[in-house]
């Protein structure tokens, strides 16, 4: 069973952190379809957080189809998230390396590179939404 933790420096609200930790665990294969999620009461007690926060995270996971609640029994993982195989990751990483080398040649330092990536990333995600 997954055990949650809270990172106060993450900049994410507790409910977002719970959602993210479930998604990560699914991607890394630590949680599988059919696994039971901890009870809301237990998460609230363990992390000393408001039970409504846990409920909210579980509800969001339910809405995205990752978990489902069986009344009187508990909440269970009901889907998997696509993990990416090393065969796919390799070429992507190679491309990125090539691009980083090019950016350095163009005179960007590390900070400039991360800023450009973050900025472009934001741009494309907002385009996707629009």
């Amino acid at each position: 069973m997954i055990e949650f933790y809270l990172d106060s420096g993450s900049g994410l609200s507790p409910y977002q952190q719970i959602v993210q930790q479930v998604r990560h665990a699914l991607r890394l294969g630590l949680l599988r379809e059919g696994d039971q999620m901890p009870k809301v009461k237990d998460v609230a007690a363990q992390l000393a957080i408001n039970p409504n926060t846990v409920l909210k995270a579980y509800r969001e996971l339910e809405n995205t189809g990752l978990v489902s609640a069986r009344p009187g029994v508990g909440t269970f993982v009901s889907a998997t998230l696509p993990g990416v195989t090393p065969a796919v990751l390799g070429p992507l990483r190679r491309d990125l390396r090539r691009w980083i080398a090019k950016a350095r040649l163009a005179g960007l330092d590390d900070e400039g590179i991360t800023a450009l990536i973050a900025d472009t990333f934001r741009e494309t995600t907002t385009e996707d939404i629009a």
Partner: peptide
């Protein structure tokens, strides 16, 4: 403090 708040939250949930 943490122990107190944990118990309080458990009570709220229960």
């Amino acid at each position: 403090r943490r122990g107190f708040l944990q118990d309080l939250m458990e009570t709220v949930a229960e």
